[in-house]
Design a protein around this nucleic acid. Structure first.
Length: 350
DNA sequence: AACGTAACCAACCGCCCAGCC
DNA sequence: GGGCTGGGCGGTTGGTTACGT
């Protein structure tokens, strides 16, 4: 009832964080843990409210944050999970290792939402808008055409990985069949009730409505080459490593920290002994996911399978089941369309 | 080169909820 | 049981950068 924000106090600083503030916060949390966020600022020598400190730590300073461009697999996961969970960014973020809910939310609002809209898909419902352009590719914008082609290729990757996970037989139509075999050889995830599992197991019945002749049609290989050129992430996207190296994809942040050797020093000296096992697991995962897009797709799915079941309320699972019914009935679901698109044999070479 | 616009993203705001007293 | 508090979350804002004219 008219409660004042914790940041309303006189003398509490707002606005962008300075490198010095970052350094103070990082060293304090690193040494003592955050404890009570409200009590932290005076102890750490900061004139910030606890909430601001918490946010800064969670969204920026935390050691296990990955920054830089989102990979195809990450974008796909976001879209899929958003279709099921809506704007529950923290829930979505829990399935994307090293990504914060804020970053995912920003990425959705600035990029993914627009892409879906351009394709005539309502980003809120993930269903075609009434004025959808799907099925009328001649009238689609250039960008929309590219986006559809990109998603189709992406979907083929998923489809290939699904096939590989069912039977460890190389599929000559898929890129990097050896990787698929490797993916299939990986230990299966433990059985669980999972919306993504439901998603994966959906029976797609809708034939493609897209007139392939109207589209650019690069080969899978070339498409993948193009996509990896434009959206691939690297092993060195950890914010801290990048800050130290000054070579992040996010030039702004790199420059920012590059101005403060103290920060870089702290980052490099960061003793991760307390979380070394977890860190190693994350790095091992990156070794796989960043280098092998198809394995990555499988990995993300199986990772999600391991993580989702425990924290989803029944209502969400019910909603997921309803979504399944919708997908089964709806002839114009965009993922269905994409996943069912036949391989194009007239892809131009770039 | 200067200006205007778009895109991006860090940070804030306010609400909600669980836990504590 | 009810009020208070801390923490978490989603929505929004505003500053900065990139791009176009």
């Amino acid at each position: 009832m008219g409660r004042h924000s914790c940041c309303d106090k006189v003398g509490v600083k707002k606005g962008p964080w300075t490198p010095e503030e970052d350094r103070k916060l990082f060293s304090y949390v690193h040494q003592h843990g955050h404890g009570s966020w409200r009590a932290l600022p005076p102890k750490a020598g900061l004139r910030r409210c606890g909430k601001s400190c918490r946010l800064r730590w969670i969204n920026y300073l935390r050691p296990d944050i990955k920054r830089g461009k989102f990979s195809l697999q990450e974008e796909q996961t976001i879209i899929q999970l958003h279709a099921l969970l809506g704007n529950r960014w923290s829930a979505i973020a829990s399935h994307l290792p090293k990504r914060t809910d804020n970053e995912i939310k920003n990425h959705w609002n600035t990029q993914l939402k627009k892409r879906l809209s351009k394709m005539g898909i309502d980003p809120a419902t993930h269903k075609p808008m009434s004025h959808a352009l799907i099925g009328q590719p001649k009238h689609l914008s250039h960008m929309a055409q590219w986006e559809i082609v990109r998603l189709q290729a992406e979907a083929r990757m998923v489809r290939c990985s699904k096939l590989a996970s069912r039977a460890p037989v190389s599929n000559p139509n898929c890129y990097h069949s050896l990787l698929l075999t490797a993916a299939a050889a990986a230990p299966p995830p433990p059985p669980c009730l999972d919306i993504l599992k439901v998603w994966k197991g959906m029976t797609w019945t809708k034939p493609p409505v897209v007139d392939n002749n109207d589209f650019f049609a690069p080969s899978d290989h070339n498409m993948l080459m193009m996509m990896t050129t434009t959206t691939t992430t690297t092993d060195s996207e950890s914010a801290f490593l990048n800050c130290a190296a000054g070579n992040t994809a996010d030039g702004k942040n790199s420059d920012y920290y590059g101005q403060d050797d103290n920060i870089n020093g702290i980052l490099m000296e960061h003793d991760n002994s307390s979380s070394i096992l977890q860190q190693q697991q994350l790095e091992d995962r990156d070794m796989i996911t960043d280098n092998h897009p198809i394995i990555s797709s499988n990995f993300m799915m199986s990772t999600s399978q391991n993580m989702v079941a425990g924290d989803l309320p029944t209502s969400v699972l019910c909603a997921a089941a309803n979504d399944v019914l919708f997908f089964e009935d709806n002839k114009f679901n965009y993922w269905s369309d994409i996943l069912n698109s036949p391989p194009m044999d007239n892809w131009p070479v770039f």
